[in-house]
Design a protein around this nucleic acid. Sequence first.
DNA 1: GAATGTATCCCTGAAAAACAGGATATTTCC
DNA 2: GGAAATATCCTGTTTTTCAGGGATACATTC
Lengths: 211, 211
Amino acid sequence: MIVPGTIMPINVFIVDDHYMVIEGIRSLLQHERTIEWSGHATNAASCMAFLQHNQPDIILMDINLPDKSGIELCKELKEKYPSIFIIGLSTFNQQSFIQKMMDSGASGYVLKNATKEELLEAIKTVIKGKLFFSDEASHTLQKNEEKKIVLTRREKEVLGMIAEGLTNHEVAAKLFISTATVDTHRKNLLAKFDARNIASLIKTAMQLQLI
Amino acid sequence: MIVPGTIMPINVFIVDDHYMVIEGIRSLLQHERTIEWSGHATNAASCMAFLQHNQPDIILMDINLPDKSGIELCKELKEKYPSIFIIGLSTFNQQSFIQKMMDSGASGYVLKNATKEELLEAIKTVIKGKLFFSDEASHTLQKNEEKKIVLTRREKEVLGMIAEGLTNHEVAAKLFISTATVDTHRKNLLAKFDARNIASLIKTAMQLQLI
DNA sequence: GAATGTATCCCTGAAAAACAGGATATTTCC
DNA sequence: GGAAATATCCTGTTTTTCAGGGATACATTC
């Protein structure tokens, strides 16, 4: 692991399916002496392949990749190569994404409208083992901290089925429980979402990316 | 207007709130002799300001801007400066976005995972007054052509209110019509969306960005 | 001018879900 | 061990939704 003060440059690798973003980051970082461009991949598979023979210090990783989500990839990478620090990279300043990325072992989260300075700061913070968030990202994290809706496993299951259009009766049959139980879950979901009815519940659940 | 074969370079301006993308495009295009970097803006307002004193040939425009949507900005620009060609730029390969952008007067639509070649082709095609779409974008346009859901004004209104959580009764009161009528709209919506009930209707409507 | 299509409007009765107000196992965590 | 959270189930009433219909109004097309 590289520690602050070391003369060795920080090796940075990028996984993003947008050439423009890869090119943009390369352009932003190319004149930094402390940073070395390790390479890039446009999907999860070629990223994994690259890592078999190379070990960058930091991976900048898009949340959305063509073959699998950045969240999954992040989890897998951290299991295989726990010493690599991962910084989530995304257009979306959404609480659920950031949360999932951090839960998967990422060390930071930077929005794609970040400036060069912000990106550098992120890299230099994360390499020390600390966490880093874009200003905007940390704002949304704080803001949504309180009104965060936590669903139980069963509730998520039921919510998903309701969204698919199943009736209470059908959900009950699928889960081998009584319709009354499904009704209770439904009730609790409505309460948690502070929704007047299923229509508005589905709407907010979709907005919060819970379906 | 610049015609093909002219020696004058094509002036390209970019509006995008992501520095990385701006930087990426600049980097991609900087060695092209046929293209001149006119400048960039990170929001609609500064784009408008720039155009008061400059007239680029082409504007690459993100769909999502901090102050107003690219779709609105596109419409306004085409009214004020009809000779400027606008190419929509977005991460999303979604039919509704592409459609709206084209309806607002854009000449093309390029996804952000486009290659340098694709971007150049887009610019060179559009400058001739033709339309250009990313391969993927044109695919989705074709694919969704048939199963495109067209709602009437009334249906959109009712759909919106249902999604807000209003009951048939409340919608009826707001629109000064009978609940039975609201119910018919509801029925027609269910039929158009091929949904089993309101839950699945709201879900698909959200996915299709119709709410 | 007749036919067609589409958007809007309305009705009834059965089915489903919401709502109120309970209760009881089973984990899970301190 | 005991509190808290989770998941399960019940009864009965009220409200909403859903699945059949049908009617009118108005523009478009042949």
